[in-house]
Design a protein around this nucleic acid. Structure first.
Lengths: 146, 146
DNA sequence: CATTTAAATAGTAATAGTTACTAATGTTGA
DNA sequence: TCAACATTAGTAACTATTACTATTTAAATG
């Protein structure tokens, strides 16, 4: 079992959540398919219920939601689908993404565009967060597209 | 009737779409409630059907979608709600937004964070777009929150 | 101005994604 | 081992959105 699934598991433990078969299976699936890649939630739902025919939607959605609250996964709307990606650094080091609009693959960017000059334009506002993302085709999908 | 609704109307005409009562009513509603502000689609649906009891969902959603294709409105997911804002400059001048996470109000930013240094990190990628948004409370909502 | 034609609409129903509920189960900590 | 309580399965409800089709209507044409 990969170490990052163990990491995620210990995050669950630290937050007094129980380690169930269902949660472990979901973490493994996410680690295998959604590392450095956004995967839409319905395909997770489909896969889990195919693999574990009597797993309920409830369980899947609730767990994804809890994983997100704990920073184990990152949520996002890709196109018009709710998507999720396994979070590699649980430290939450601040960074932004290039996201392939074809396959969902993610490349981390080093820079953060939030500067003082920008926030200075926002007198009186209480800035709480920001989003910076670049979209396009990753090298592989760009090749396929030719 | 405000001139920007007329502008939007002429966009429709230029694209050979018919000027119907329903479309005009929707444009007026959007102009009045969704200028410099994101409004969620279901509340548009609710309002239109309250005002025009026999307007079908189909019509509302289809028109929003067409308005978006023509650049008359800008679509976006706010939190987890599909939202829409009336587009002021039909020129599509490139810009980014501060968005109030409480009321949806929008403030335009002057700067664009996309630099050559950033795209240089993306060798082999085909960049097609980007998103930069700052979230927080607008001055009014920040006050109310105290 | 009357007529034609294709686009747009209303009304209804279906679909998809997500959430709610409750009894049964399973994990964890003592 | 056992008790407590979180988690789950199963079912059903709910909400947002889309599909379908007969009817209406805008606007182009003569």
């Amino acid at each position: 079992m990969p170490s990052t699934v163990e990491e995620a598991t210990s995050v669950l433990k630290n937050n007094h959540l129980k380690i169930t078969k269902q949660r472990t299976a979901m973490l493994e699936f996410l680690y295998n398919t959604a590392t450095r890649k956004f995967v839409d939630v319905t395909s997770i739902d489909n896969f889990m219920r195919k693999t574990f025919p009597n797993m309920s939607h409830n369980t899947i959605y609730r767990n994804i939601s809890e994983f997100a609250d704990l920073g184990i996964v990152e949520r996002q709307v890709q196109g018009d689908r709710a998507s999720v990606k396994f979070q590699c650094d649980f430290e939450h080091e601040h960074h932004h993404h290039f996201i392939c609009s074809n396959c969902g693959k993610v490349i981390e960017l080093k820079d953060c565009p939030l500067s003082k000059e920008i926030t200075d334009q926002l007198k009186g506002c209480e800035v709480s967060g920001h989003l910076f993302q670049i979209y396009g085709l990753c090298p592989e999908c760009a090749q396929l597209n030719k």
